[in-house]
Amino acid sequence: MTQTDQNIEARKGWMGLLAKAPPAQLAALFDTVEPKPGFTWLRPCEVGGVMLRGRMGGTGAPFNLGEMTVTRCALKLETGEVGHAYVQGRDKAHAERAALIDAMMQTKAGEGLRAKVLDPLQDAMTRAKADRAAKAAATKVDFFTMVRGDD
């Protein structure tokens, strides 16, 4: 893996995390971050639809499944870094925060942001997922064989 590949993988990671984060939680965590850099819009927040697809039989040829609401935007920090966001739902403030964090992660502020925002978000998401998986596991059927009376 080259340095660029690693950078892309890392960026994919935080962009995906920000897209899936509960907006209120992201807002609360990002509030604790100071200072916030100034920026100019490259593309102001826009709400739209993205067509989701499935595959026939789960693995075959694609078909259109229906749309999902998505908000996107792009911005540029005063220092030149460009941040993009594509986030689920219609929350423009959420998209703005996500794009701003995407840009800031490319600066020296990145490390601090990871500790203050990304790591707590990831932890919360991992915990929520584990909680659901644990509840599902409790509903797993244990089969047992009945002993027949005439044997």
């Binding site: 639809g49 993205v50 989701l52 697809r53 789960g58 499944l65 749309e67 998505v70």
Partner: peptide, 13 residues
């Protein structure tokens, strides 16, 4: 809603 594009087919596996 403007159509922003399409997603990759979901991996239900």
């Amino acid at each position: 809603l403007p159509r922003l594009g399409h997603a990759e087919p979901v991996d239900t596996g």
